[in-house]
Every structure is written in structure tokens, then in C-alpha cells.
């Protein structure tokens, strides 16, 4: 079943790397839901966080193809790990005096803040998970959204020892990936074990 997978990628900070990463995803026919790129504490390394809407096996294939790129240092599918994955939303609301209070109540609940205000509108900033942002936007809709922009998620794995690890493409245990009987193999592959 398709779901949004979150890939956390450390890449060389060089021209054209974004192009290579995006091309490798495109070539497999996957659509990127969101992608964010930014520097890390090491100036020669950038972090990309890519959300792709694909099945598990496709994500595995995309991950392996990305790992092959010479400019990709490490890549990890963090979808099933304990991660903090946040994005930022900037939204310009139709907010005349009459409804400004109602808007601000919701902004408070979402721990957002007003970053610009004018007589008929204001810009609100909210950060959080993709789901939280989606919900916030739904709540804003009745008041009149003038425009909005989202950053796409940036993700880090939780915990003291969490480091981005290279995906183990050749894990030690086998045999769980039992091949389904013939005729049932196309498109439905048991991915619980090794590939």
C-alpha cells in the first residue's frame, strides 16, 4: 500500500546535487510530496528531507538508487523510526477586525504566531508535523485563506545515540522474505525480510 515515506539524506554540498537526487527519484516514476534542503553543521554536507508517496518496496528501490549516487553520503528511510519531522507554514489569512479574534484563538491553540498584520489580513507562522499543519489549514479555510507556503518536512531521529545510519542493504538474516506462490509474485512482494 502506498504511503508517504520520509527519507533523510546527507549529501555533498555541491552544485547539481539537488538535480541528481530529484532525477533519480523522477526516473523511477515517483512523485516527491515535499523536499527540503539546507546546510548542516558541516559546511561540506547538506541535509535533504524527502517525502515520497510510494509503497514500501518502491521506497526501498528509490533509497537504493539514491544511495548509488556518488554525491549521496548517507540515506535513511526514517518513516518507521522515532523522528521529529517538522515543517513550517506561512499563511496569509483574510482577517478583518470582525473575525480576527476567532482566527487568533485557533492560532493560540496551535502555538502559532502572527508575523505580519495589516488592516484586512495577517500572516501566521505555524510549525509542526505535516498532520498538524494540515489540520490547521483545514481550520483556517472557513475564514478565507489568501495564500500559503509550506517548507516541507525537516526530520531528525530522536534520542541520544540517533545518528543517520547508512541503510543496511545487505542485512544478515534471511529466509523471512518467503516468495509467495507463483502467480502471486508481481507487485505483491513480502518485504518483511531481506533484500
Amino acid at each position: 500500500m502506498n504511503q508517504s515515506r520520509l527519507l533523510s539524506v546527507l549529501v555533498e554540498n555541491k552544485p547539481g546535487v539537488l538535480n541528481r537526487v530529484a532525477s533519480a527519484v523522477r526516473r523511477r516514476g515517483f512523485n516527491i510530496d515535499s523536499l527540503s534542503v539546507g546546510p548542516t553543521d558541516d559546511g561540506s554536507v547538506s541535509r535533504m528531507t524527502i517525502a515520497v508517496h510510494v509503497g514500501h518496496q518502491q521506497a526501498e528501490q528509490a533509497t537504493k538508487q539514491l544511495a548509488k549516487l556518488i554525491d549521496v553520503i548517507t540515506i535513511d528511510d526514517v518513516t518507521e523510526q522515532r523522528v521529529v519531522a517538522h515543517e513550517i507554514l506561512l499563511i496569509r489569512m483574510h482577517a478583518p477586525l470582525s473575525q480576527r479574534r476567532h482566527v487568533l484563538d485557533i492560532v493560540d491553540i496551535y502555538r502559532g504566531r502572527v508575523v505580519d498584520i495589516a488592516s484586512e489580513s495577517m500572516i501566521i507562522e505555524v510549525t509542526g508535523s505535516t498532520e498538524k499543519i494540515d489540520n490547521f489549514i483545514d481550520l483556517m479555510r472557513p475564514f478565507g485563506i489568501k495564500e500559503l507556503g509550506r517548507s516541507g518536512a525537516v526530520a531528525l531521529v530522536r534520542g541520544d545515540d540517533a545518528r543517520l545510519r547508512l541503510v543496511d542493504f545487505d542485512p544478515p538474516h534471511d529466509e523471512q522474505a518467503v516468495i509467495p506462490p507463483a502467480g502471486d509474485r508481481t507487485g505483491s512482494v513480502d518485504m518483511t525480510g531481506n533484500v
Partner: peptide, 22 residues
Amino acid sequence: IVHIDIDPAEIGKNVVPHVSVV
């Protein structure tokens, strides 16, 4: 099925092996 290949991206791309060696 056993699959031995130097490229991890080839393993399981079309046929999923029971034992793979990269």
C-alpha cells in the same frame, strides 16, 4: 533463490531472493 551481485539496487528489484549477498 540466491542472488549475488555487487549492486545492492539490483537485489530484489525484479525478483526477491531468499538469500542475497552484496
